[in-house]
Write a protein that binds this DNA or RNA. Sequence first.
DNA 1: ACTACAGTTTAGAATCGTTATAAATTATAA
DNA 2: TTATAATTTATAACGATTCTAAACTGTAGT
Lengths: 138, 138
Amino acid sequence: MGSSKEYIEKLRKSGLRPTKQRINICEALFDAEKTFHFTITDLVKIIETKANQKISLATVYNTIHAFQKKGYLKEIAINSSQAYFDTNTTDHHHFFDEKSKELIDLKDEDVHPIKIKKNIPGKKIKSVEVLVRLDSEN
Amino acid sequence: MGSSKEYIEKLRKSGLRPTKQRINICEALFDAEKTFHFTITDLVKIIETKANQKISLATVYNTIHAFQKKGYLKEIAINSSQAYFDTNTTDHHHFFDEKSKELIDLKDEDVHPIKIKKNIPGKKIKSVEVLVRLDSEN
DNA sequence: ACTACAGTTTAGAATCGTTATAAATTATAA
DNA sequence: TTATAATTTATAACGATTCTAAACTGTAGT
């Protein structure tokens, strides 16, 4: 999907120096066919497997936060125990499987459009997130 | 709103011994005119102020989890840094003010009914939560 | 290419919210 | 009143995340 060159370009454009580590993170995140969801420890494993190279946790946190700020990633609020991220930054909603702890994208057409009829003076809506929790059936 | 007697009754009915600490927690949670949102540290402060008595963090966590299991409280997923709870256990949605870190209830009539048109085989929907994040306007 | 400097990475320490532990205390049934 | 199990507590342990300060690296200017 992406070449090393593209990622170097992308990083430079964002004001981030294209280091070996950041390129490895880009490859882990953006080479995939599809967008996906991950936790930080998931990602460390993916990077280290794909690049066959160790990476410091601090670097992963730093870079993920930088990417989030640049809008290359979104955080999904699930629960208070761990941060989940999504490489799909378009507006969309999620299933969360309580059993497997897995996130599943809902497509726009899977959810009736949501209208919020209340507004708070001096505040504007930044995002509307729907989380549908799933249970095993039986 | 509630008398100590009522809480003793409520606790007994739930199979929980009515200890001084649990009654203090009940008073902090259920004496209020309105339902409200809180984090654990919020709650400790409320309890210690109201009852003028120290309480162990562990007791608060234990009791909150017991109450959650009994359905007297709900947890609201906001972010991965802290757990938020709600004394309003009916189905409803929330605003979250990113600036003040405050939760605000949305009434049923404030949100168009949400229909999920996708289903996952073997799974059933446990809950549908909408979180509307608010930003300062300007 | 060489240098200087700011940006980055790193291991490890520190922090935060939360959970576990084990000893002391308390509620309750007999 | 006593025996027992449930509860509380202080403190330790934990996992995720952030901080720190020293080593390293990318880059702009020579």
